[in-house]
Simulated scan of single mutants.
Amino acid sequence: MKTSKKIGLYFGTFNPIHIGHLIIANYMVEFSDLDEVWFVVTPHNPHKIKKTLLEDHHRLAMVQLAVEDYPKLKASNVEFNLPQPNYTVNTLIYLEEKFPDQNFCLIMGEDNLKSLQKWKNYEVILERYHLYVYPRISEGIVENQFSSHPKIQRVPAPVMEISSTFIRKSIKSNKNIRPMLPPEVWNYLDEMNFYK
């Protein structure tokens, strides 16, 4: 009989994935009870403008390159074939049907927790899934109606103040931001001349 794994889903456009994402995902898998973390590459976040995104397959390729050496971290393109825009609740239900043996949880930053009540069917998410929340410095600890929810677990992961937006702007202005990206991702971006 298959043993059920606890899988943390880390959603994002990862445009591009950077060391901040990797550090958080790796911390979650090493210092919480999660067995794996899947980077779910979102084709279109309903709250983001599509035109600023690199094509889906390029963002997925960079995530795959970034996690190659981390057996507990995986890249997932599950949302590529789901109706767009993608809503987390639909993806969770789809994954549950596709992998009935696995136990899926959500990983999110403190900032997302703040706006959770704006999410589609957020009550269903809270009822059925555990949320692992990592801190964001700009937000501090958010006290809201979810603060003491039994399904919400705060994980004291390192606070990462690197954003994909900052990386894209820096590349455009010809700054060397190599240390902020996994080397394979930097090489890919550089060869493809992305964000310039």
Rank of each mutant, 00 (worst) to 15 (best):
K72E: 10
V63W: 04
Y27K: 02
M62R: 07
M62D: 11
V40R: 06
G20P: 01
D56G: 01
P71S: 15
N45C: 08
H57K: 12
E68L: 14
P46M: 07
V41G: 01
V37W: 02
L34V: 09
P71D: 12
V29D: 08
N26T: 14
L73A: 10
M62F: 08
E68W: 13
H21D: 00
Y70E: 14
E68F: 10
H57I: 07
W38Q: 09
D33G: 06
A61D: 14
E36T: 11
K72P: 05
V41A: 09
L22A: 08
L54N: 10
L34D: 09
V29T: 12
L54V: 13
N26I: 03
I23M: 07
H47K: 04
N45G: 00
Y27S: 12
A61T: 13
I23Q: 09
D33H: 12
E55I: 06
K51M: 07
I49E: 08
A25P: 04
R59D: 03
A66P: 05
A61H: 15
Y70P: 06
F39R: 02
H58A: 13
G20D: 01
H44Q: 14
V37N: 09
K72V: 08
K48M: 05
D69H: 15
W38R: 12
A61C: 10
D35C: 07
A66R: 11
F39P: 04
E36Y: 15
L73Q: 05
S32A: 06
I23D: 01
P46Y: 01
Y27I: 01
V67G: 11
L60M: 13
V37G: 07
Y27P: 02
V40F: 09
A66I: 06
F39M: 11
D35S: 14
N26Y: 07
E55W: 00
L60K: 09
L34A: 11
K51L: 03
D33N: 11
V41S: 02
L34P: 10
I19V: 15
N26V: 03
H44R: 06
Y27A: 04
K48L: 01
P46R: 08
E30D: 12
Y27R: 03
K51Q: 15
Y70M: 14
